[in-house]
């Protein structure tokens, strides 16, 4: 059999069906009604405008980190440290709001400063992982993981120490910022902020164009395909790796700033909400192709938000969303392998 686009789609559909089947088996094993659980997730994600707007709230940071990760994946790097980069983005944005919030500057300027600070924070943390890799020979996976734990500790120390609420420090985070410094939302109760949606869409568009249409993107691809060959052809290899780390951290930092300024309005211990690891899954699922990032990230965000009420309605753990996402990515990866084994590449007719 030949490898044609339609057969490729068939394999993707097959992966989705298998993932649903396995999740169903897991649900039956947990003595839970599968159909009710799936219906509950759909209801929880699209049942009302309120929950759907929450899906978009989750979509923004997820799309931002996925955009950044596409750059590090293009150059052949596994930026697992992305979680820490989101956290540092949140910390730096909080710092900017604390310093300039009461300085009399207009709130718009302060918020822009907070986003810039978030970018700097995420970028610096990513470059630390990059420097460990380039100059210390520390594999970016382990350096990044270690830095994630350090970032978490730094965050908790700030919340319980220097930035603690007046009176008693708690896991609920720092004191909320003045309302003037909240990102504008569609309604006063909603967490959905249109400017952040625009930023996220712009981010994935920029990354798409950068990879598809610029020499920089081409060089990143060359380094990713074969670093040694790229080096011999005169591409400064480690500089490109470092640049992709810095840019990825920048996007992660924006995600952290969004979490702080638009969603929580304060710094909380779990400010990254696992979006970094989820972004890695999204990037793998779309086979590192920027064109599919937005819809797949939306789907993953819907699963996350849709499963929030599972514990209340069906007494199930909300980690069901992770089970479904994980099996889906696993079967898509395995599907690539099976396809390459079973199907031949179509003959090029010249």
């Amino acid at each position: 059999m030949r490898d044609t686009p339609s057969r490729r789609v068939l394999f993707q559909v097959g992966a989705v069906v298998l993932a649903l089947l396995v999740t169903t088996v897991v649900l039956i094993a947990a003595k839970a009604p599968p159909l009710a659980a799936f219906a509950n997730i759909v209801q929880g994600a699209f049942g009302s405008w309120d929950v759907t707007s929450n899906v978009l709230v989750a979509w923004v940071p997820l799309l931002l980190v996925t955009s950044g990760l596409l750059l590090t994946f293009t150059v052949g790097l596994w930026n697992i440290g992305i979680e820490g980069q989101i956290i540092l983005g949140g910390i730096f944005a909080t710092w900017a709001l604390r310093v300039y919030g009461s300085s009399g500057m207009s709130p718009t300027v302060v918020l822009i400063l907070a986003f810039v600070a978030g970018m700097v924070g995420g970028s610096l943390w990513a470059m630390l992982a990059g420097a460990l890799k380039t100059f210390g020979g520390v594999n970016e996976i382990f350096g990044g993981l270690g830095l994630n734990f350090v970032a978490t500790a730094l965050n908790i120390w700030l919340i319980f120490g220097p930035w603690k609420r007046p009176g008693v420090a708690s896991m609920s985070g720092t004191l909320p910022f003045d309302q003037r410094l909240w990102m504008p939302t569609v309604t006063p109760q909603s967490m959905l902020s249109v400017p952040t949606v625009i930023i996220a869409v712009a981010a994935i568009a920029i990354v798409y164009l950068m990879i598809q249409g610029t020499y920089f993107g081409l060089r990143l691809k060359a380094v990713g395909k074969n670093a040694k060959a790229a080096y011999i052809l005169g591409i400064p290899t480690w500089q490109h790796m470092m640049a992709s780390f810095a840019l990825c951290g920048l996007f992660a930092g924006v995600a952290g700033a969004v979490q702080v300024t638009a969603v929580y309005h304060r710094l909380i211990p779990s400010i990254s909400s696992g979006y970094g690891y989820l972004g890695l899954m999204v990037a793998m699922l779309i086979n590192y192709k920027a064109a599919f990032a937005a819809p797949v990230a939306l789907f993953f965000a819907a699963l996350n938000v849709g499963s929030i009420q599972l514990p209340i309605v069906l007494r199930l753990d909300s980690s069901l969303a992770g089970v479904l996402q994980g099996t889906l990515v696993l079967f898509v990866l395995l599907g690539h392998g099976v396809r390459q084994r079973v199907l031949k590449k179509p003959q090029v007719v010249s």
Binding site: M284, G322, G326, V329, L330
Partner: peptide, 10 residues
């Protein structure tokens, strides 16, 4: 990596 997350959630 996928299995690390999947097994944790499982």
């Amino acid at each position: 990596f996928v299995l690390a997350l999947l097994c944790r959630d499982l």
